[in-house]
Design a protein around this nucleic acid. Structure first.
Length: 566
RNA sequence: GUACCCAUAGCUCAGUAGGAUAGAGCAACGGCCUUCUAAGCCGUGUGUCCGGGGUUCGAAUCCCUGUGGGUACGCCA
C-alpha cells in the first residue's frame, strides 16, 4: 500500500530544504474529523526554528505544493496544513492490497521468525476454572495470534499451578475425608469441597497446616504416595480444563507448569548463593532488595522447601536456554506486579541481561456483584457456565430471528462464546471490572455478535451477487463518503494490529473492527450494492468483500470465529 | 504506613507521541423492514474530563500535590 505519510514527507521536504522527511512525518496527525482532511500538519513547533508564525508557515507550505496526483486537495487552515488524499488513489491502494493478500491482509513480517513466548491461562490444578481466569486466557490467546500474524514464532505456554503447599493441603484433606470414586466422577467440584473443608478444619486445628507443609515437602522429595496422589489429581483436573480450552479453541505448545521446574530449582539456589545474593533472615533464605526499594524476595522457606518466585526464576532461565526467546511475555493479573518486579530484579542481579526481554502484561481484577471471588469460600462463577449460558441465550435469539438457519448449534456456539470473549477483549486490560450476566449476555452495539453479524451480512450480499473477487474495478466510481470511510479504516488496519502488538493490547483490534463494522453498516444502508450499473456494483462488492475480510481477520486475531451466516 | 494502578456523559468505556468544536455503546424517547440479514440504520440531550497548582503557543493527555477507590507488601500462588 502507498504510505501516505511518507509521501507527504517527500512532498514537503522537496520544497523546504531545512525540513527533512522524518521531522515532517513525525509532525503529521489525523485531524478530529475528515472535513479537515486525512492528515494534518500542525506548524507550531516549526515556528521557533523558522522564525515565522505558524500560520504563515502553514500557508507557505500549502501554497508550495501544487498538482500532486496523490492528493485531491492540500489546504491551509490557520496553523495547519491539511492533506486530502485522492479518493481513487486511496481506494485503489487499499482494495488491491486486500485482493492480493486476502486473509493475510494486515499481516507483516516484523518478527522474522524470532521466538516469542506467551505464558497465559495457567490455572491451578484441583481448583475450578472460573471467570477470574478468563482474562489471562483470552488476552493470552489473542497476543499469541497477533505475534504469529506479525511473523513471530509464538509459543503458548500454560504454566499450570500444579505445585506448592496447596497440594499438601489437598493430600491431607483427601486422606482424611476423600473418596476416590467421588473425585473420579466429579473431579474439580469434589477436590474443591476438600480444599474448602481443609480450610474450615484448619481454622479449628492449626496442626493441619503443618501437616500440609510436611506433605508438600514429601512431594518435593519424591515420596511415592505423595507423588502418586499428586499425579492423579493433575490428570483429572487437566481433563476438565481441556473442555473449556476446546470451547475457546485454544491450544498450548507446552503445559510445563510449576512442577516441571522442581528439579531445576536447586541450581538457581546454588547460583544465588555463589553470587552472594542469598542471605538468611528469620530462618528463611532471601534476596535482599532494599537497595531497590522493594521487600525481600523469599527464595526458600525455613523448612527448606521452595516458593513461587524461585520457580519463576528457574522457569525463565530454562526458557532462555530452551527457546532463546526474543520476548518472554507473562499474561498475569496486576495483583502480581510486585512479584514480577522482584524476580525480574533478582534475575538482573544474577547477571542475566536478557531479563529486559521479559515482560509482565498485567490486567485488572474481575469481581462479582457479591464481592471479590474466593475459591476457599466457594464464591465463584465457573467459566464453563458462563460460556454455556451465552450459547443458550444465542440459541434462543437464533430461534427467534432466524429459525431456518442451518447448523444452529454450531453457530450458537460461535456467537455465544464470541460474545463472551469479545466483551473481555474490548476494554483496556488494566481496568478492573465487575462481572455481570446482563452485560455478558447483551448482544447489541459494541459487542462480538454485532461485529459477527456485520460480517455475516456482508457475506450474504456477496453470495447473493455471486461475487468473484477481481481487481478489474473502476476505482473512480468509489466516491461517496460512506464508502471512503470504510476504506480509510481498512487503510489503518495493519498499523492498528502492530500497535496492538507493541502495547500488548488486543482491545485496539477489537475497537478497530467495531469501527469497521459501524462504517460498513452505514455504507450498507446508504448505498445499494446490487444495482443495475454492473461496474458500480463490482466496485461496491469489492468494498463489501474487503470489509468482511478485515472483520474476519480481526476476529480471528481475538480468537473469535466469523460465521458466514447467523 | 510504603509502593503501584485507576478516576472522562445517568451506566460501561474510547480518546494514538501534548494539538483544531471531548467521542462511542447502553439506557430513554421518536422514526425506518413490498428493496442486498432490523443482532441493523437515522434522529433527540447531557460533561466543574475528581479538586488545586505548574510546564507549554496549546493539557483529558506531561510534572507536583490533595481527595476517592483498588491492589500488593517473608515462609500461599
Amino acid at each position: 500500500m502507498i504510505d501516505f505519510k511518507n509521501e507527504i514527507g517527500k512532498l514537503v521536504s522537496k520544497n523546504f530544504e531545512n525540513l527533512n522527511e522524518d521531522t515532517i512525518t513525525e509532525l503529521l496527525e489525523i485531524p478530529p474529523n475528515y472535513d479537515l482532511g486525512d492528515y494534518a500538519m500542525p506548524c507550531f513547533r516549526l515556528a521557533k526554528e523558522l522564525r515565522k508564525s505558524p500560520n504563515i508557515i502553514a500557508q507557505e507550505i500549502a501554497e508550495s505544493i501544487k498538482g500532486d496526483t496523490l492528493f485531491e486537495k492540500i489546504e491551509n487552515v490557520g496553523p495547519y496544513v491539511n492533506f486530502f488524499i485522492d479518493k481513487k488513489q486511496l481506494a485503489k491502494t487499499v482494495l488491491e492490497e486486500v485482493i492480493n493478500r486476502k486473509e493475510e491482509f494486515g499481516s507483516a513480517n516484523i518478527g522474522n521468525d524470532r521466538n516469542v513466548i506467551v505464558e497465559f491461562s495457567s490455572p491451578n490444578i484441583a481448583k475450578p476454572f472460573h471467570i477470574g481466569h478468563i482474562r489471562t486466557t483470552v488476552i493470552g490467546q489473542s497476543l499469541y495470534k497477533i505475534y504469529k500474524f506479525l511473523g513471530f514464532n509464538a509459543i503458548a505456554i500454560n504454566h499450570l499451578g500444579d505445585y506448592g503447599t496447596q497440594f499438601g493441603k489437598l493430600i491431607v484433606a483427601f486422606k482424611a475425608w476423600g473418596k476416590t470414586e467421588e473425585v473420579e466422577n466429579n473431579p474439580i467440584p469434589e477436590l474443591l469441597k476438600l480444599y474448602i473443608k481443609f480450610h474450615e478444619e484448619a481454622e479449628k486445628d492449626s496442626s493441619l497446616e503443618d501437616e500440609a507443609r510436611m506433605w508438600f515437602s514429601k512431594l518435593e522429595n519424591g515420596d511415592e504416595e505423595a507423588v502418586g496422589l499428586w499425579q492423579w489429581m493433575r490428570e483429572v483436573s487437566l481433563k476438565e480444563f481441556s473442555r473449556v480450552y476446546n470451547m475457546l479453541n485454544i491450544q498450548f505448545d507446552s503445559y510445563a507448569g510449576e512442577s516441571f521446574y522442581s528439579d531445576k530449582m536447586p541450581k538457581v539456589v546454588q547460583t544465588l548463593k555463589a553470587k552472594g545474593l542469598l542471605t538468611e533472615s528469620e530462618g528463611a533464605q532471601i534476596v535482599d532488595l532494599e537497595a531497590y526499594k522493594m521487600p525481600p524476595a523469599l527464595i526458600k522457606k525455613s523448612d527448606g522447601s521452595t516458593l513461587y518466585i524461585t520457580r519463576d526464576i528457574a522457569a525463565a532461565i530454562y526458557r532462555k536456554e530452551t527457546y532463546d526467546f526474543y520476548k518472554n511475555i507473562y499474561v498475569v493479573g496486576s495483583q502480581q506486579n510486585l512479584h514480577f518486579q522482584q524476580w525480574f530484579k533478582v534475575v538482573e542481579l544474577m547477571g542475566y541481561n536478557w531479563v529486559k526481554d521479559c515482560v509482565h502484561v498485567p490486567f485488572g481484577m474481575v469481581s462479582l456483584e457479591e464481592g471479590t471471588m474466593s475459591t476457599r469460600k466457594g464464591r465463584v462463577v465457573f467459566l464453563e457456565d458462563v460460556l454455556k449460558n451465552a450459547v443458550d441465550k444465542t440459541k434462543e435469539i437464533i430461534n427467534d430471528k432466524n429459525p431456518n438457519l442451518e447448523n444452529k448449534d454450531e453457530i450458537a456456539k460461535q456467537v455465544g462464546i464470541g460474545a463472551v470473549v469479545f466483551q473481555e477483549l474490548f476494554n483496556s486490560r488494566i481496568k478492573d471490572y465487575t462481572f455481570s450476566w446482563e452485560r455478558t449476555l447483551s448482544f447489541e452495539g459494541e459487542t462480538g455478535p454485532y461485529v459477527q453479524y456485520t460480517h455475516a451480512r456482508a457475506n450474504s450480499v456477496l453470495s447473493k451477487a455471486e461475487y468473484d473477487v477481481t481487481a478489474d474495478v473502476d476505482y473512480s466510481l468509489i466516491t461517496n463518503e460512506e464508502a471512503i470511510n470504510v476504506i480509510r479504516l481498512l487503510y489503518s488496519f495493519q498499523s492498528t494490529i502492530i500497535a496492538a502488538m507493541e502495547k500488548n493490547e488486543p482491545s485496539f483490534i477489537a475497537r478497530h473492527i467495531v469501527d469497521i463494522a459501524q462504517a460498513f453498516n452505514k455504507f450498507y444502508h446508504e448505498c445499494p450494492i446490487i444495482v443495475e450499473d454492473k461496474e458500480l456494483q463490482k466496485a461496491r462488492l469489492l468494498i463489501v468483500f474487503s470489509a468482511a475480510t478485515a472483520i474476519k481477520v480481526g476476529l480471528g486475531l481475538l480468537g473469535i470465529e466469523a460465521p458466514q451466516k447467523m
